[in-house]
Measured scan of single mutants.
Amino acid sequence: MTEYKLVVVGAGGVGKSALTIQLIQNHFVDEYDPTIEDSYRKQVVIDGETCLLDILDTAGQEEYSAMRDQYMRTGEGFLCVFAINNTKSFEDIHHYREQIKRVKDSEDVPMVLVGNKCDLPSRTVDTKQAQDLARSYGIPFIETSAKTRQGVDDAFYTLVREIRKHKEKMSKDGKKKKKKSKTKCVIM
């Protein structure tokens, strides 16, 4: 069974824990209790493949930012979460993405942009803004509501699919490099 290491990042209060708990335990946590770091595991079937999701729910508070490099190193894919009623959390996505790329030393890291709290009427981040940002990053965008469960499975499952595509691409690139290195030079 394939294991996928997913990391949920975003500013404090955007609903990272609520999304994760909704996926794992099928219930909505409405009281806000700032996370330092929590880890969850769940076995699911995605596109006919049974897999184990190892999900790291991270601290959004700035005082825990020193811990970010460590979990970013171990993560295979990242859910970059903002709240649709919090423009600052949307603007912060850029910083999370840049930090992930720096730590992973790669421009090509599996990510999904997630606009959470889409059940709320007080939207300050337009869907088109988020779609445009995701398009500019070359990553999928999904709106979710941890409260109603809308888009929750889709967000995590899409990230797994992005990781699969990335692994497939990397193995193809690896095979191309191996083929090239088999060419021999004969000096007579």
Rank of each mutant, 00 (worst) to 15 (best):
T2A: 09
E3D: 11
E3K: 05
E3A: 06
Y4G: 10
L6Q: 03
V8N: 00
G10F: 03
A11E: 15
G12R: 03
G12T: 02
G13A: 02
G15W: 01
K16I: 15
K16N: 15
S17P: 02
T20K: 00
T20L: 05
T20G: 04
Q22W: 12
N26I: 02
F28S: 01
V29A: 08
V29T: 04
V29E: 02
E31Y: 05
Y32A: 05
Y32R: 00
D33P: 15
D33E: 03
D33K: 00
P34S: 15
P34V: 14
I36E: 00
E37W: 01
D38C: 00
D38R: 00
S39Q: 05
R41P: 00
R41T: 00
K42E: 02
K42N: 03
K42C: 03
K42V: 03
K42I: 04
Q43W: 05
Q43H: 08
V44T: 08
I46T: 10
D47I: 00
G48A: 05
C51V: 11
L52T: 06
L53F: 10
I55C: 13
I55D: 00
L56C: 07
D57Q: 00
Q61Y: 08
Q61G: 03
Q61D: 04
E62G: 11
E62H: 06
E63S: 04
Y64S: 07
S65K: 02
A66N: 13
Y71R: 09
M72F: 13
M72D: 01
M72P: 01
M72S: 08
T74E: 15
G75Q: 02
G75K: 02
E76W: 14
G77T: 03
G77F: 01
G77M: 09
F78A: 04
F78E: 00
F78P: 01
F78Y: 12
L79F: 08
C80T: 03
I84G: 15
N85Y: 08
K88S: 15
K88R: 13
S89G: 11
F90W: 06
D92F: 04
I93Q: 01
H94C: 15
Y96W: 15
Y96L: 14
E98V: 00
E98A: 04
E98G: 03
Q99T: 01
Q99I: 14
I100K: 00
K101M: 13
K101Y: 08
K101A: 10
R102F: 03
R102K: 15
R102P: 01
D105N: 10
D105E: 10
D108I: 05
V109I: 14
M111P: 01
M111C: 07
V112Y: 09
V114F: 15
N116R: 00
K117A: 13
D119C: 13
L120M: 10
S122V: 07
R123T: 12
R123E: 13
R123I: 06
T124V: 08
T124M: 10
V125A: 10
V125H: 12
V125W: 08
T127H: 06
K128N: 06
K128I: 07
K128F: 06
Q129S: 09
A130L: 10
Q131R: 07
Q131K: 07
Q131Y: 04
Q131F: 07
L133P: 04
S136K: 06
S136F: 10
Y137S: 08
I139T: 09
I139A: 08
I139C: 11
I139K: 04
F141C: 03
I142N: 05
E143D: 07
T144G: 04
Q150K: 05
G151A: 07
D153G: 09
D154V: 06
D154A: 08
D154K: 06
A155R: 01
A155V: 09
F156M: 14
F156N: 05
Y157V: 12
T158A: 08
V160T: 03
V160K: 06
R161M: 02
R161W: 13
E162K: 11
R164I: 13
H166G: 11
H166T: 12
K169Y: 15
K169H: 03
M170G: 12
M170E: 15
S171C: 11
D173R: 12
D173I: 07
K175E: 15
K175T: 12
K175C: 07
K175D: 06
K176S: 13
K176A: 09
K177D: 08
K177R: 05
K179N: 07
K182T: 07
K184N: 08
C185D: 13
C185R: 10
I187C: 12
